[in-house]
């Protein structure tokens, strides 16, 4: 048996189900997966430190804080200082994970992120929770719908929006190994597992569930699950619809996008974010210059969110599987 065969066998042994299988599990919030993974990384990597701005119970950095009090810095309600301090820690050789809600992380401290993190190219990991409308009842002040646009515009910044808890765990580990600024956007609510058991996140690499002849939905975050449901409905009606998880929004997986654009008659983007400047914006920018095709964008349409249950809000802003189905049918 060659080395290569042995390796393959090992991989097969390690994966109990066939490739692509998703073991049914109870839904879990991506922020919970972050808290667990950060704790595990902390055990292995003494260079990892964490900062929070008085929301460690919600962002789940509190687990790391309890286990490693010397390597955790609660900065109080002071996001700008948190980002600057994180940059300083990075310059001293640490790998800082700085967390708070996405609105405050990206909006309150944008200039600090721009100068001390991106322009200075410091090894800071910004992991924000409570992105999007599924924050729910707290309302618009707490629902980040512009964070991806804000982070994506910054040179040197990588932007990642994981789809579920397992991708979050995999992405956080990858982020810890990556050298340079990263923004990871997580959610508050529990989300179903959608990624296959044998999937591992690779920065800049999209995951293709299927490329549809008639349409492909390019989704990120919680919208991957919703896109899969929409694709199932559409394919059941004879409309061949694919789904791609574009979890790295910057840098975009241009190769996969081109492949999709050459195959699918229609592209639909789906994100829990404003349609301005986020995933939909990125996809349109790239395709309009390289392979113009019809693109429809699902997302919040240039408005603020409001209080409500996550499900009600997804309906209100036209982001359900039904809305995607309608969009595909009306674009034919």
């Amino acid at each position: 048996m060659t080395e290569l065969h042995k390796t393959r066998q090992d991989v097969q042994d390690a994966v109990p189900h066939h490739p692509g299988h998703v073991t049914p599990r109870k839904p879990k919030a991506t922020r919970d997966a972050y808290g667990e993974t950060l704790l595990e990384l902390g055990k292995r990597r003494p260079d990892i430190v964490a900062l929070d701005a008085d929301l460690s119970g919600s962002t789940k950095t509190a687990r790391f804080a309890r286990e490693f009090p010397d390597r955790f810095f609660n900065m109080g309600v002071a996001e700008q200082d948190m980002i600057g301090t994180a940059a300083g820690l990075a310059l001293a050789g640490k790998v800082p994970f700085a967390s708070t809600f996405a609105v405050f992380e990206t909006g309150r401290a944008w200039d600090q992120i721009r100068l001390a993190v991106c322009y200075s190219n410091t090894n800071v990991k910004l992991v924000a929770t409570h992105g999007g409308v599924t924050v729910g009842e707290d309302g618009a002040s707490h629902q980040a719908l512009e964070d991806i646009a804000l982070m994506r515009a910054l040179p040197n910044m990588m932007v990642i929006v994981p789809a579920d808890a397992s991708e979050t765990a995999s992405a956080i580990s990858a982020v810890a190994d990556h050298k340079g600024p990263v923004y990871v956007r997580l959610g508050r609510a529990k989300v179903p597992y959608v990624m296959p058991d044998d999937y591992r996140f690779t920065p800049g690499k999209a995951f293709v569930f299927h490329i549809g002849k008639d349409a492909t939905i390019i989704a990120a975050g919680i919208m991957v699950d919703i896109a899969k449901k929409a694709a199932e409905i559409l394919s059941g009606e004879g409309i061949d619809t694919g789904v791609v998880n574009m979890s790295t929004i910057k840098p975009l997986d241009e190769e996969t996008l081109l492949r999709v654009a050459r195959t699918s008659a229609l592209i639909v983007t789906a994100e829990e974010h404003s349609v301005i400047g986020g995933l939909g914006g990125s996809v349109c920018e790239f395709l309009s210059e390289n392979h113009p095709v019809t693109v429809r964008r699902i997302g919040v349409r240039d408005t603020f969110g409001c209080s409500g249950t996550p499900d009600d809000l997804l309906k209100r802003y036209g982001m359900t599987a039904g809305d995607i189905v309608e969009t595909v049918k009306n674009s034919g």
């Binding site: 200082d81 948190m82 301090t85």
Partner: peptide, 26 residues
Amino acid sequence: EISTGSLGQGLSVANGMALGLRLDGN
């Protein structure tokens, strides 16, 4: 050590460096 020019940011970065040095016993 760090890019500056947008005022008010240096002391935070200096604090972070100082904390990092202290963690290492430097």
